[in-house]
Amino acid sequence: MSPEKTSAKQPAGIISLQGVHKSFKGRKVLDNINMDIMPGESHIVIGLSGAGKSVLFKCILGLLRPDRGAILINGEEWFTLPIEEKLQRMSCVGVLFQGAALFDSLPVWENVAFVLRRQGMNKPEARERAAEVLEWVGLPDICDKMPAELSGGMKKRVGMARAICHRPDIIFYDEPLAGLDPVMSDVITTLMKRLHERMNVTSLTIAHSMKLVREFSDRVSMLYEGRIYQQMARHDIDSSHDPVFKQFIEGRADGPIQFTFSGSDHGKEAT
């Protein structure tokens, strides 16, 4: 599907990617990505490390400009907008970054209420709202702590509180469970599910964890060699017979995706 043809079509999804291409130094990272994410849907993008998930994530957020194609959010292509309007529209989006990306120089409550303060809310009110959201993610009484004083799991939850404090319509999660212990992973997954159900938000998640896919997704896309290799509803995951997809969800080193490592019994040199 060419981007020229598709850009004239009214997008069906709240997020719509049409023929998105992105290369770095001649290497194709995203190759003709077409994807529609419906309002209220929880969509998870899975794929091997280096498959282009983070590049896709950054392109959708407007942090990287695609070489070709269109990315529409709420039916609008943000790349064509002036910076001020793009930033204004960003308020409908909340993002949880892989490392939480909290601002080191601000206390927790100012991190959480960052957008509210930018929108002109006064300090006491913003602080109160931040405290409420922090309590919701299970972190009461940490308003005045600095990010450096928090553990990885706490940072993730503060990051989540910051992502939802301004009540966005769409939430992006970049590897939300990366680097967490199993218990904290379950806490974050539970919070994501609660958030999705109660706030009726649309979610786009980049993940490796099949547990998260099974518990949190409505639909799954697998990114492989820069393309959307498979896209399916969550309940179809286990019935897929595609060997590449099966290898990924089963987490096996042997299979059609081959790796080379010294003394390997599994793979031969990738061709």
Partner: peptide
């Protein structure tokens, strides 16, 4: 990614 985070926080 704090600079990326600023973008996503409308700043």
């Amino acid at each position: 990614e704090q600079i990326d985070a600023l973008w996503t926080l409308s700043t």
